[in-house]
Nucleic acid binder design. Structure first.
Length: 572
DNA sequence: CACGATACTTAGTAAAAGCAGC
DNA sequence: GCTGCTTTTACTAAGTATCGTG
């Protein structure tokens, strides 16, 4: 721990390092060199499968059946998910059953021919009991587990990159299980196989101690590629994509990259007016491709849509971004609810989160959209002459380092800054100011369409809060009555008491408002990925808000560079 | 220019940890 | 100490972007 400075003096060192390191990058690390020295202990593998006790039974067609170890392991994956909606879905069941059968012995295969005849309930009960038992463990037992985890973290959770000891983000290899895709994923339920040392590529520097593979095993490969930041990689079997072990957000390499991202967004701020004028001009272009590009860019800018790369059909859930919008995803209303030229968006975006919005647009945009949609089927691409590669090439010409996603970062951060300016009331107390901060944050989350499922206990939790408020109100009324009837010499004390209760009441009411407004909105994604932390740091300094009220410990570690760097007058 | 491979960022959910009130 | 809730962390899927190749 403590590789990132927290004390004031070391912050200065860190600050200087950042400045220096960025210079070093140009001087010492030419084109794409990410480090000079990298040493780590390799990954932690998933624990081996432990067969079920003899008394835990699996039933097929009403009869007890003893499964082979391999088949049993895969069956437990399903049993553990039995209460989940996934296991009721046709695709999930089909994919699971197909992959499960591959793990069966030939006898099992010939017996088990229908998933609906499989009874996992006993297995499921066993796992529930296990979970319960874990909860009921004694303090000492829990402490022992905690210590074991800490030991693992200490041993495998850190690496040395150049002169820093850095925390690793995900040093544990993903355990085998059933793939849980989001939304309507065609591969849900498929078996995610166990990763072995023979699947693993180790990346470290030549002059480092190469981590030894587990006894009796070999790594797939050991390489020394200092043009990448990852320590370990493997290929997963569902999509065939590569997974990586990388450093924690608190690390130098991630922090610098993050800083750079916001600097790029700030450069966009300087030329965004020009770019906006440009795309407005392009709406009139005689080239269809240019018009489509200009309308798409307008959406990306105005609505903070994602770029929308093409995806392989049938391999993933059917989701889209800007460039991959289809005709069926928008409706054009020449007039709607007293507004002219309204575009109604309705599509599934990343993670199959629905984007629904009715947006009045400029007449030229509207006319262009009508043109793009002419003679097309609902399932045809809206921007048939455009893709993200074309768009990003164009953006690169407008500004070095500009890509579609920079608009999201820019618009998110500038919105936070504006909203903070607008909403912060200098006379408010700290809880009220924090409510304003959260509202500014919320404006961004809404812009970026960051949603969450309402917490399962939301209604109850609101009711609890309300009863707290009611109790506080009663308490206040009592205090005021006492104040009235108090003798002169006791008045001051009584008055102070009511004031204190009033403040507590106010705090509760603010909390209730905040929670209600936040029901289906997730603030953390924008806070962590889109909002230049220096804006928040400056706001805290300006209004005397402790930074701990805005960023928790992990967030403060991630944003250490910003906390150290930004002064009260920082402007994005 | 399409395409697949690669690397890295962004995302929501589930589990674990922390904590306030009894 | 226990309980029930809130907050934090862990997890890993799902995006963006770029590059080399034919």
């Amino acid at each position: 721990m403590g590789h990132l400075p927290t004390s004031e003096s070391s912050c200065i060192i860190y600050h200087n390092c950042l400045a220096l390191l960025s210079r070093w990058e140009e001087e010492r690390y030419p084109e794409g060199i990410k480090w000079k020295f990298l040493e780590h202990k390799g990954p932690v593998f998933a624990p081996p499968y432990e067969p079920l006790p003899e008394n835990v039974k699996f039933y097929y067609d009403g009869k007890v059946m003893k499964l082979s170890t391999k088949a049993e392991e895969v069956a437990t994956f399903f049993a553990k998910m039995l209460d989940h909606e996934y296991t009721t879905k046709e695709i999930f069941r089909k994919n699971f059953f197909k992959d499960w059968r591959k793990e069966m012995t030939s006898e099992e295969k010939s017996t088990i021919t229908s998933l609906s005849k499989c009874d996992f309930t006993h297995m499921s009960q066993y796992f529930k009991a296990q979970t319960e038992a874990r909860k009921q463990m004694s303090k000492e037992e829990k402490q022992k587990i905690k210590e074991e985890n800490e030991r693992l973290l200490k041993e495998y959770g850190y690496c040395v990159m150049d002169n820093h000891k850095e925390r690793i983000a995900n040093f544990k290899i993903e355990p085998p299980g059933l793939f849980r895709g989001r939304g309507n994923h065609p591969k849900m339920g498929m078996l995610k196989r166990r990763i072995m040392p023979e699947d693993i590529i180790i990346n470290c520097s030549k002059d480092s101690k190469v981590p030894p593979p587990p006894p009796g095993h070999k790594w797939k490969e050991v390489r020394h590629d200092n043009k990448v930041t990852w320590l370990v990689s493997w290929t997963e079997n569902i999509q065939g994509s590569i997974k990586y072990i990388m450093l924690n957000p608190s690390s130098r390499i991630k922090g610098e990259k993050d800083w750079q991202k916001y600097e790029t967004a700030r450069r966009l701020k300087k030329c965004v007016d020009k770019i906006r004028n440009q795309y407005r001009e392009d709406w009139k272009s005689k080239e269809m491709k240019v018009r489509q590009r200009a309308v798409a860019l307008y959406f990306i800018d105005k609505l903070a849509l994602r770029a929308g790369n093409e995806k392989e059909e049938g391999e993933t859930a059917d989701t889209v971004g800007c460039c991959s919008l289809r005709v069926e995803h928008i409706k054009l209303h020449p007039e709607l609810d007293g507004q002219e030229y309204v575009v109604e968006f309705d599509f599934l975006g990343k993670d199959s989160i629905r984007y629904y919005n009715k947006v009045p647009v400029e007449k030229r945009v509207f006319k262009n959209l009508q043109l793009f949609m002419e003679n097309k089927q609902p399932e045809d691409d809206l921007f048939d002459r455009l893709n993200t590669s074309i768009l990003n090439k164009h953006l690169q010409d407008l500004m070095e380092g500009l890509t579609a996603k920079v608009f999201r970062t820019y618009n998110a951060s500038i919105t936070l800054q504006q909203q903070l300016k607008e909403l912060t009331n200098p006379d408010d107390n700290i809880p009220a100011k924090i409510l304003s901060y959260n509202r500014a944050n919320r404006a961004v989350a809404i812009l970026c369409n960051h949603q969450r499922a309402p917490p399962k206990t939301f209604e109850k939790s609101m009711m609890n809060l309300q009863s707290k408020i009611d109790a506080k109100k009663e308490q206040l009324a009592d205090a005021r009555r006492e104040l009235k009837s108090a003798k002169a010499d006791a008045k001051v004390r009584r008055d102070e008491k009511s004031k204190k209760i009033e403040e507590q009441l106010m705090k509760l009411e603010v909390q209730a408002t905040d929670r209600e407004e936040n029901k289906q909105i997730a603030l953390s994604t924008s806070k962590l990925n889109y909002l230049d932390p220096r804006i928040s740091v400056a706001w805290c300094k300006k209004w005397g808000i402790p930074i701990e009220k805005i960023y928790n410990k992990t967030q403060r570690e991630k944003f250490a560079w910003a906390i150290d760097m930004a002064e009260e007058d920082y402007e994005f």
